[in-house]
Design a protein around this nucleic acid. Structure first.
Length: 244
DNA sequence: GCCCAGGCTTAAA
DNA sequence: TTTAAGCATGGG
């Protein structure tokens, strides 16, 4: 089974990479820049923090709104532990309004920031050097961080191999005929991690390509199957349907 | 107006 | 243990 997944998951990856090209995930704001751009992920700790907050802010929300919320924080020089620790939760909520669920998300950000400060103090950057499994475990204990957000932080903020699953991944691999409709998160994650070598660059690119493909082509309502780079591998090619 | 968007928590069945 | 409701803005 792992052998079959291994061949097929790699083939899907190669096809998507050729078709769309490298995605440059996760978007980060350059030093002196005003908004997040796709240029290859974080290279400093302020950017790692930005990626982690972005992962919280984009929960069940389009990236557009999350990006705008990040811009607001960055333009006010708040993308550092001390400022985020000091800002009142209500003020934080008003700044991240465009990302939706702003009250809940403000609380989640506060929870995460307090965790870093209380556990690591001044050397909070050490958090990103925790082993991937340990980091994931710590994140999952925090209110507001579930499996996808935890994996996004481990993979894109810390640069460690942990495969990210999301609804796009579930939908695409269901349509391709590789997994049942309501497959549990951990189950699909394990399949990817067994099928592929544990390389953060590979995991990061793969997830980014899946998101691109599902946003641009394999959409919820009317998938654009004509010209799809995966159509000859797909169990549901040409099947027009409402959902799924 | 309805549907969807790079989820998660809490409470009810 | 599975299912539903709630969270909320913004674009198509």
């Amino acid at each position: 089974m792992a052998g079959k997944d291994s061949r097929e998951f790699r083939e899907i990856y190669e096809r998507l990479l050729v078709f769309y090209g490298p995605r440059g995930w996760w978007p980060v704001t350059r030093e002196g820049g005003s908004r997040p751009e796709y240029c290859g992920g974080p290279v400093n700790h302020s950017q790692r923090l930005e990626v982690a907050l972005g992962a919280l802010l984009t929960q069940n929300t389009s990236w557009r709104g999350a990006g705008k919320a990040l811009e607001n924080l960055i333009s006010r020089k708040l993308m550092n532990l001390q400022s985020l620790l000091e800002i009142p939760e209500t003020e934080l909520a008003s700044l991240i309004r465009p990302s939706g669920y702003f009250n809940q998300k403000a609380r989640k950000i506060k929870t995460f920031i307090k965790f870093l400060a209380e556990r690591y103090g001044q050397s909070w950057q050490r958090f990103f050097s925790e082993p991937a499994d340990r980091m994931r475990e710590l994140l999952l204990e925090l209110n507001g961080i579930g499996p996808e957000t935890a994996d996004s932080i481990v993979l894109y903020a810390a640069g460690q191999a942990s495969f990210v699953i999301d609804n796009y991944t579930k939908r695409l691999f269901y349509r391709l005929g590789h997994s049942p409709l309501g497959i549990p998160y951990e189950s699909l994650k394990r399949r990817f991690e067994k099928a592929l070598p544990a390389e953060s660059a590979l995991y990061g690119e793969y997830h980014a390509l899946i998101v691109t493909h599902c946003k641009e082509r394999c959409t919820s309502r009317k998938p654009a199957c004509t010209g799809c780079p995966l159509s000859d591998l797909c169990a549901r090619r040409g099947v027009v349907s409402g959902k799924d």
